[in-house]
Design a protein around this nucleic acid. Structure first.
Lengths: 181, 181
DNA sequence: TCTTGGTCTGACCGATCGGTCAGCTCCTGA
DNA sequence: TCAGGAGCTGACCGATCGGTCAGACCAAGA
């Protein structure tokens, strides 16, 4: 029954992604993941140090892309930053449809740890960029609606193709962010 | 130490609302709630049949208002329904800032039970009304972004007063839903 | 053929979960 | 004055959680 390491490793990761998307991180047990893979819970913990390590590796690519977007946004301000933020975040959400819901939903609580504080700050800067740098209530509210809304839409419309969903997300987000854009 | 029934009952409800808003339903234990109230876990279960009963009673007013909104929307279509849906949902979200996040976040999973199927159908109709009755991808995406975004914003901006938040939510939602409105 | 090391399992651990129960305290009314 | 009931507690229950561990299994190299 023994498979090659990378094979089982990736199967666990894929199974965890599916389960987390449906029942959330806290709502998914190691037993659930093991059952979906078709192995024992001990096998899951042979490939990953602990449950959190699965989540961390699962989110790593999305977080890397988020950090890259953040860095890109540092070089611009105002309308330019806002346009880049919208396009960048839509692309990120499309690429990581399942993961982005975790980031918006449960992840904040898991990221309270000081070690992950930079991710919180990074998503705060993303929100500011979406707000066009304005501290006003309406601009901040618009930015948050766009952020949370895009994340929710990507999770909720898995049947929509990338191109169709991208077009809809960009159109709605640009309208929501107002005349600035 | 014995307090009057309605007093303790309401204290438990209030404590649960606070905890659920921070750590979610699944992430909050009866022990957590009891600690916040300053009583034993057994006392919590003296006032409520079980954990789910706390959630049910906590959500009841919000669900009642949601059903009322649904009924009101049945009488109209198109732009009229869309306008009513936006205003009605914004008012609902403002009145139940903490509860609405549960409804959007964890509640769907908890509401899988057939007994609660009508709530799912009701929120589906709300989304359709927000989409102006259009089945198109962009209209549906816009409706979901508005729905999820408003819920997230109410949870995220507790410091904003009702009036200021209402104005911002209405403005952003109307823009997001497009030229139809 | 035997050894070795990577892969995986079943049994088990302590902690915590939601929930139960016998019995305590204290207020109230006859 | 005292019986009775409401409000509450501490101890306890079985189930499940994340995690550990000794050892079984098996392919590959000596």
């Amino acid at each position: 029954m023994a498979r090659s390491v990378p094979e089982t490793h990736d199967e666990i990761l894929a199974a965890a992604a599916r389960r987390f998307a449906v029942t959330g991180y806290k709502g998914t047990s190691l037993q659930d993941i093991a059952r979906e893979v078709g192995c024992s819970k001990a096998a899951v913990l042979y490939h990953f140090a602990n449950k959190e390590a699965i989540l961390t590796e699962l989110m790593a690519p999305a977080i890397t892309m988020l950090l890259a977007l953040d860095e890109r946004l540092l070089g611009s301000t105002g309308q330019t930053a806002q346009r880049d933020a919208v396009e960048g975040f839509v692309e990120l959400a499309l690429r990581f449809r399942r993961e982005i819901a975790l980031l918006q939903g449960e992840f904040p609580e898991l990221l309270q740890a000081p070690a992950f504080a930079h991710i919180q700050r990074c998503s705060d800067r993303l929100r500011d960029a979406l707000a066009g740098g304005s501290p006003g209530a309406e601009a901040q509210v618009a930015a948050l609606i766009v952020l949370a809304g895009i994340a929710a839409a990507c999770a909720e419309f898995p049947h929509l193709g990338d191109d169709e969903l991208r077009a809809a997300l960009l159109a709605v987000a640009r309208r929501a962010l107002g005349p600035l854009d």
